[in-house]
Simulated scan of single mutants.
Amino acid sequence: MGPSSVVRSVAAVEPDLDDLGASSRRRRYLLLLLGLLAVFLATVVAAVGMGAVPVPPATVFDVVGHHLLGSPAEVTWRPAHDSIVWRVRLPRVLLGAAVGAGLAVTGMALQAMVRNMLADPYLLGVNSGGSTGAAAAILFGFGAGWGEHALQIAAFLGALAASLLVFVIARTAGRITSTRLLMTGVAVGYALYALTSFLIFASDSAEGSRSVLFWLLGTLALAHWSAPLAVVVAAVVLVTCLLTLWGRRLDALAIGDETAHTLGVSPARFRLVLLVLVSLAVGVLVASSGSIGFVGLVIPHLARRVVGATHRRAVPVAALIGATFLLWADLAARTVLSPQELPIGIITALVGAPFLLILVRRLHAGSE
């Protein structure tokens, strides 16, 4: 066999090797997703069963199966366990999973949008706007005519108003740049946080002030079977799917505007679409759970370390890790000082602050 024949043989084999490598990577990625999904489902069962009143996993399955599928038909468990699992803990766990996943994927989108690895969903001031709306509802009865969901509606309207304010200020000459968006979000966030603090001090209600402070640190205690829970879950599923489908656009935007233009992506237009999508999603999350920090900052970095920076792969991984992480954080919040409950933001901050310090040190070391 001559040299030319050898070259042709190698050239013919190389595509097959590439296909085998791609197939192997896809298989490893699918196995990783299945493993994360299994851990998440196990965490759901543990979170529903653990608490001040422990419920065995078998009872958890029986109660959920009875309410969803009618099987088992015969009730052999205590009524108290039925109420704890179905009415109290399961809605809370579903809300916590949705909020954790939503904060994680919106954090990843924001970091690509502003090309800053220290960005999180509260960068846009949406969190502060939601807190201001909630404070107005709790302390001064804003939206009292909206019924039992007045707090969530007021918080969402506040978050939406903050998003619109950031958009109007950051948009100049028809364009929104990452730097302008970053600075505007920080400024609006601080201004609204100051307004929330003023509302607390202007109120004569000590109980209302404590409720607002608890809200500012995050809570899942408002979870129950109702339309808001369905809205949160649907919003998170929709945003996660869209960001996964837009993975290549996010990759291009994260590299730079010039690269995005080269690949056929309009940075200004796509950044505007992301701003609207993330703002609405974070507004829904804040309206249902208050201010829960660090999840949108920490989890995207963990996802990238696991599967790399490709957003099409990293977004689903971030959603599963974020959901699992927040469930364990909530479990710690309601059991560490049981029967007293801690705001969940304290737990996420205790985990996230050391991670942020490590990340800053690594970024500093990489720039030297």
Score class of each variant (00 low, 15 high):
Pro79Asn: 07
Thr132Cys: 01
Leu350Tyr: 13
Asn127Ser: 15
Leu263Gly: 09
Ala268Val: 10
Gly322Arg: 12
Phe294Leu: 03
His311Phe: 11
Leu213Gln: 11
Ser9Lys: 08
Met1Ile: 07
Leu32Phe: 03
Val166Asn: 00
Val286Cys: 11
Leu220Glu: 07
Leu229Thr: 05
Ala98Lys: 00
Gly247Gln: 13
His261Val: 01
Arg25Gln: 11
Ile84Ala: 02
Leu357Thr: 08
Leu357Gly: 07
Ala12Trp: 05
Gly352Lys: 01
Leu34Ser: 14
Ser209Thr: 14
Val306His: 01
Leu123Cys: 08
Gly141Tyr: 02
Asn127Pro: 01
Pro54Asn: 14
Leu94Ala: 14
Asp204Ser: 11
Glu14Lys: 08
Ala206Ile: 03
Ser71Val: 15
Arg362His: 09
Leu331Gly: 14
Ala314Ser: 13
Leu110Arg: 00
Leu33Thr: 10
Ala12Pro: 04
Gly352Ser: 12
Trp225Tyr: 07
Ala252Arg: 04
Cys241Asp: 03
Asp62Ala: 15
Leu238Cys: 14
Thr348Leu: 01
Val317His: 01
Glu148Gly: 13
Ser211Cys: 03
Ser226Phe: 05
Ser83Glu: 13
Phe294Gln: 02
Leu220Trp: 06
His67Ile: 08
Val93Lys: 01
Gly141Leu: 09
Pro56Asp: 08
Ile292His: 05
Leu34Gly: 15
Val273Gly: 06
Ser163Cys: 14
Arg271Ser: 04
Ala112Leu: 10
Gly296Val: 13
Phe214Asn: 03
Ala260Leu: 06
Leu160His: 05
Leu17Ile: 12
Arg269Asp: 00
Arg78Tyr: 08
Pro3Arg: 11
Arg87Glu: 11
Val298Trp: 00
Val126Met: 14
Leu69Gln: 09
Val99Thr: 15
Ser291Ala: 15
Leu359Pro: 10
Leu342Glu: 12
Val273Lys: 04
Gly2Ile: 08
Arg180Lys: 12
Val233Phe: 11
Thr59Lys: 06
Trp246Leu: 05
Val360Glu: 06
Leu263Tyr: 10
Met183Lys: 03
Arg89Gly: 01
Val48Ser: 09
Ala97Ile: 02
Gly158Cys: 08
Gly308Val: 03
Trp146His: 04
Leu272Ser: 12
Ala309Lys: 09
Phe214Arg: 13
Arg27Lys: 05
Ile344Lys: 06
Leu90Ala: 01
Gly133Val: 09
Ala230Ile: 07
Met50Thr: 12
Gly352Tyr: 00
Trp146Lys: 00
Gly322Cys: 15
Ser338Met: 09
Ser367Trp: 12
Pro54Gln: 12
Leu250Cys: 09
Gly366Phe: 04
Leu151Met: 11
Ile255Glu: 03
Ser203Ala: 13
Ala230Met: 07
Asp257Ala: 04
Val55Asp: 11
Ile255Ser: 03
Asn116Phe: 08
Gly208Tyr: 00
Gly296Ser: 10
Thr184Asp: 09
Val351Glu: 05
Thr76Lys: 12
Arg305Trp: 07
Thr262Cys: 10
Trp86His: 05
Ser205Trp: 06
Ile153Val: 15
Leu220Arg: 14
Arg269Leu: 02
Phe142Glu: 05
Thr76Gly: 13
Val48Thr: 11
Thr259Asp: 04
